[in-house]
Design a protein around this nucleic acid. Sequence first.
DNA 1: TCTGGGGTCCTAGGACCC
DNA 2: TCTGGGGTCCTAGGACCC
Length: 387
Amino acid sequence: MDAFYASVELLRYPQLKGLPVIIGGGRRREDDALVAKYGGRLSDIPVEAFPLLRDYVGRGVITTATYPARQFGVGSAMGMMKAARLCPQAIMLPVDFAEYRRFSRQFKDIILSIAPRMQDRGVDEVYIDFSDVPGGQREGGRTLARLLQKSIFEATGLTCSIGVAPNKLIAKMASEFNKPNGISVVHEGDLESLIWPLACRKINGVGPKADAKLQLHGIETIGQLAARPRDWLIANFGRSYGAWLHDAAWGRDDRPVETESEPVSMSRETTFDRDLHAVHDRAELGRIFTELCVQVAGDLRRKGYAGRTIGIKLRFDDFKIATRDQTIDFYTQDAAEIRRHAGLCLKRVPLQRRLRLLGVRVGNLLPEGEVEQAMAEMRGGESASLF
DNA sequence: TCTGGGGTCCTAGGACCC
DNA sequence: TCTGGGGTCCTAGGACCC
């Protein structure tokens, strides 16, 4: 989906179309009061009533920027303070995940009704298997891509960009070629002309660390990566990652489109308004800690899961991260139980530095309905192995 | 450039078991 | 007495993604 969060916001506030808008940070505006003041509809709120990025003080990053804002160099994951320097006049809206999830559900349902083999990749992205969709091969997939775009736009008013290719790796890169509202079809034979000129960083799975290391070896483009012998990549990047890099550069990827998956963990974390000290801010920290446990427990219960690995995550004022976890011998979704074990985890971390972030995680998840059987197997494990 | 929140997967060492 | 080989699970950290 193109600039998904921002595009959803523009549906509510069409008066902001064409303006630089960023999503992130800040509290929710008092829409009700503004609506009452300006005549009853969100779309009646005048542009001048929206807060500007230049007036923002606080922590946080941009989650999404509209295309007009991107022209100023503002992009996702950028710190708010830097963004404010680049584009102080940008209008700033707070994130509203509930609303984005609603639209996410909507566009995915439309895709599923047309092409049922779909893999979720977060709120705003999916992989779709065209193979068995009637007409899915017409014009190399372009016809179906157009139908998907049209259906999604008619139902939601949102645009998306689609890459069609023989596998997920190439399709993902292709989807970036023609944004926004674009389609690009990449065939096997286009590897050299369309993929090899791209920077290695464009490969989904090559992040900042791997890219920096590749550059140290003089490897900038995917073509240069493809030119390195497989053995050389394995020697320098490890057996697994090296081989994967080689395959990726040659456009090889045989991962199927996974239509279902079970969650592995659920977590809640929060960055404080100011750095907190374990002793000095004990009460506040304790309150937040308990609240996070209550939230995770709520998530587990709502989604019908229980877990047996409970862990915490700390980010210190120097941005170093520490994690601790503990696996218990039963499955839980209970806030007090989670709080107790998370508390024991916390005791194992040295707490000299101030804390910036605290998180609580429950892993080793199982659907509620399978817990009983799993427990029975755990108890009966030894005697069963005798046979 | 003072840098969110929710995830997944991988690695590597150690405990433990057969 | 100084010594095996295979396997699983747990823990901590880190890379990466949306």
